[in-house]
Design a protein around this nucleic acid. Structure first.
Lengths: 344, 344
DNA sequence: TTGAAAGCGGTACCAT
DNA sequence: ATGGTACCGCTTTCAA
């Protein structure tokens, strides 16, 4: 069908291997032949067939991204979009392609991942989940297949991962509220099967500890990972005899629900109840009042994951890398009760 | 490295071609040999190498998705996530892989697309943009490379596309406001280089026409495709001597900005100014008041795009397909000024 | 520096 | 029904 290396060879009056050397920019070739071959390639509109190269090189120059099934948190926020942008940028820069794969449930997810690996369609994998999915990960470890997880994982030492320091982030968010004078601080989040969830909670508790504030179970509410869940969780906290004066909400979307519940109760934010969210969703700065949130730099998570993986693929460096992407608390009106309000 | 077809052939005491037939589930083979070979395959943990198959078959079983560079609208909403889910589901069902590719600007986008095509890494392409990017599309047409566009395109008849009927959607949204008694209806949107933008506007005008309402340029404001743009656009409309009593906003994110501007002016939604948005972003139902919006079923756009493309790849049916995914107006408080308010 | 030839891991046609 | 073999398009070793 299309022009092959042989066609070019014939037209240029050289052997196929010579053309191949030109493609690979092999130094053991005369400048003259090189130019002639390049010339012919241009004329004939030749491009090397990626599949054939992959077969000969035993390398696909492709990394796979496993996107969790839709019930996962990843789908709600712009997380997926951003992480893909990050992965895409790194991969493109390094000359890699990105193959993406899903499954409608955890079993299908496992099967499609195995397929990519077994059929050798990709050189390495990025797993977009901090959820405990032992089956897939165990299998990859067993097969010594290169991969990196976005999010931390219990087996952390033996695998590559890229993550925020969620515990620190939880600490910072809580500390901020404490410094605003709060002593009754609630925590609202989703299930702890998400590793980052538990981490954020740990940071919250640690901050309370540091300032000698006692943690009360009444101030904890875990619900579904959506606006609605945040709404329900806050309703629950508001029904307590003792209400918190501030809440740390482990996700912006939930925080929006939290704010709705607070307003519905006729309370003001931040005067009656202050709110801090996580992830710094684009909308966080536009809700009323603008929501203080921990920015997690999702693009960087993706970018770094891809870099770690590709480095691993290209060097025979077998050491597992762990990268922590720093977070930043973006302070907005929803949590400011002391001075300096004018500045915002 | 890993087990090949020859290893299996040897172990099973048959020829490689026989093993190949078993893989392809070729009928011209005895049940007995088939079973034995399958048995050996299991034992040896054999999986056919996808790259080798691709080379021999001249088919990658992979479709490429070209994601526009980040400045595009697609990145803002959960659009990208949803469309990828749709594409992924269809592709998986049909046994195809999805390769995704970007570029940080239009030129890089063009180059990376050409690369996928020229190096024959994919069998077909899905373009996620209704923007007028003639260079890429012209090239694909010239090369007769199979592709489908999500979103409509000026050259509509000669290419495959999947889209909503944005004109109809614009009509419906506007008609709804007219039926609520409005006569002064504004239109807020982004640049008309987005085809869907112009279409929504056309629908808006058509609805005004149908009800003999004159269109006034004063009621039109085009701004950047973000919350901030919506805010600015609404501020502009509010500064008119004659203010609209309702606005059609061509995107939810912009609509959020519009709502902010209205509230800031001390006006009420929907009593003073009603608002209708587009895309039905997850957050639309949670803002205050809940935003009426046109649901566009992004998952279906992606799913159908993939189906159209794969159908085209598998049959030699060269006829161009155009699929219209229906929209639905989700009426919420932001636009209801007559009766039945209690129901919401 | 260049060419010939043997792979890479399958597929498919031609025999038998 | 099965085996032998010539590709698919490129890479790489070995010789010259």
């Amino acid at each position: 069908m299309s022009v092959t290396i042989k066609d070019v060879a014939k037209a240029a009056g050289v052997a196929a291997s010579t053309v191949s050397r030109v493609i690979a920019d092999n130094p053991r070739i005369s400048q003259k032949t090189k130019e002639k071959v390049l010339q012919v390639m241009k004329e004939m509109d030749f491009y090397p067939n990626a599949i054939a190269r992959s077969l000969a090189n035993r390398s696909t120059k492709t990394i796979g991204v496993i996107m969790p099934h839709s019930s996962e948190q990843v789908f709600v926020n712009p997380f997926f979009t951003e992480v893909m942008r990050g992965i895409g940028m790194s991969a493109m820069k390094r000359g890699y392609n990105v193959l993406f794969s899903t499954g409608s449930d955890i079993e299908e997810e496992y099967r499609s991942t195995s397929k990519l690996v077994n059929e050798q369609r990709v050189d390495g994998l990025i797993l977009l989940t901090s959820r405990i999915k032992d089956k897939t990960i165990d299998e990859l470890i067993k097969k010594k297949f290169p991969f990196v997880v976005v999010g931390k994982h219990p087996k952390l030492e033996n695998i590559n991962w890229v993550d925020n320091n969620n515990q620190e982030a939880g600490y910072t968010a809580t500390e901020h509220l404490i410094k605003q004078g709060h002593k009754s601080i609630g925590f609202i989040g989703g299930e702890f099967t998400y590793v980052f969830m538990g981490e954020r909670f740990k940071g919250y508790k640690k901050a309370l500890d540091s300032f000698s504030i006692e943690f009360s179970k009444e101030f904890l509410a875990l619900e579904e990972f959506l606006e609605e869940g945040g709404y329900r969780a806050m309703k629950k906290l508001l029904s307590n005899k003792k209400r918190p004066t501030a809440v740390v909400v482990a996700d912006d979307l939930m925080a929006f629900g939290v704010m709705r519940a607070i307003k519905e109760e006729g309370l003001r934010i931040p005067q009656d109840i202050s709110v801090v969210g996580f992830n710094d969703t684009p909308l966080a700065s536009y809700v009323d009042p603008p929501l203080t949130s921990v920015e997690i730099f999702v693009f960087d998570l993706g970018y770094n994951a891809s870099e770690v993986l590709i480095n691993q693929l290209e060097q025979e460096d077998d050491q597992k890398k762990h990268i922590i992407v720093p977070t930043r608390l973006k302070i907005r009106k929803s949590s400011i009760t002391v001075r300096r309000q004018k500045k915002l």
